[in-house]
Simulated scan of single mutants.
Amino acid sequence: MKKNIKKYIPNISSSQVEEPAAIYHITPKSSRVETLVKDFTYKDFKKILTKGPFTLGEWSDMLFMSERTLHRYAKDDGGFNGLQIERILLLETLIDVGNEMFGQEGFKSWLPTKPFSLNGEVVKSKLNTHNGIQEVIDTLGRMQHGISA
């Protein structure tokens, strides 16, 4: 006796998505980003400099440039390159979060501490790399939400 075996033929049309795709149009808040990259000068940097607890020497270390170059930028209102702008804006985010959480003086006194969530490393020592800055920002965010580690 031979059994009749039916062949399975998948219904391809039912496995396709039949919903229309949503079209999202995101408009930038402003053209500030383009302006910052093209025309980010020492004058713009000075606004960030006054908000933060860092000296010009510490900024020069974090931006991998000499303090003398920063003084020259100040004198000529010179512009920064793209990588330096990115680092400055990331540090501005850190400064804003830190000042909001601790206040300006409290943030300044928190920077030399060794929090458990940073494996006992000094906070200021983490500010020389992009990942380190981001790790400190994440630590502040966790602290704001009451997460210790």
Rank of each mutant, 00 (worst) to 15 (best):
S66K: 05
I26K: 13
I95T: 02
E105P: 06
A149C: 11
L63R: 03
I88G: 06
K7N: 12
I23S: 05
P115A: 09
M101A: 09
Y42N: 05
E105R: 08
G146C: 10
D77A: 13
P115R: 10
L36N: 11
I26R: 13
N119V: 05
F45E: 01
G106I: 05
V33N: 08
D61F: 05
L118A: 09
L49Y: 00
R32P: 03
F80R: 04
S109V: 06
A149R: 14
I5R: 02
I12H: 12
A22V: 11
L127R: 02
T69Q: 10
G120Q: 12
T139F: 06
S13G: 13
F64T: 08
E92C: 14
D96E: 14
S125R: 08
Q144G: 13
T55M: 00
A22R: 12
E92Q: 15
T55E: 00
G141W: 05
P10G: 14
T69S: 09
H25T: 12
L127Y: 02
E19M: 14
N119L: 06
K75F: 10
R87V: 12
V37E: 12
G52Y: 00
V37G: 12
A149W: 09
P20V: 11
L89P: 12
Q104T: 04
T113L: 11
G132D: 01
A22Q: 10
F45H: 01
F40R: 05
E58L: 02
K2T: 01
S30F: 06
Q16G: 15
K126R: 11
N131I: 10
L89M: 14
F54Q: 01
P112H: 04
L56N: 02
N119E: 09
T27N: 10
T55L: 01
K6T: 07
M143E: 08
P53G: 00
E100Y: 13
N11G: 10
R68E: 07
L89T: 09
T50A: 02
F45C: 02
K108I: 00
Q104Y: 04
F54R: 00
P112F: 06
F107A: 02
H25K: 08
V122C: 11
K114D: 09
E121L: 10
L90A: 14
I133G: 01
H145D: 13
L140F: 07
G82M: 11
I12D: 12
Q104S: 05
S125C: 10
K3N: 00
I5F: 03
L94R: 04
K47W: 04
G79M: 13
I147Q: 14
I137C: 00
I26N: 11
E121C: 08
T35W: 11
R142I: 08
K114E: 12
G98R: 06
K3Q: 00
G106A: 04
E58H: 03
K51I: 01
D39W: 13
G79E: 15
S148W: 07
K108S: 00
R68S: 09
Q16N: 14
Y24E: 09
Q104V: 04
V97K: 15
E100H: 14
E135A: 13
K6C: 07
I23W: 07
P115S: 10
K51F: 01
I147A: 11
T69R: 08
T139P: 13
S31K: 07
L49I: 00
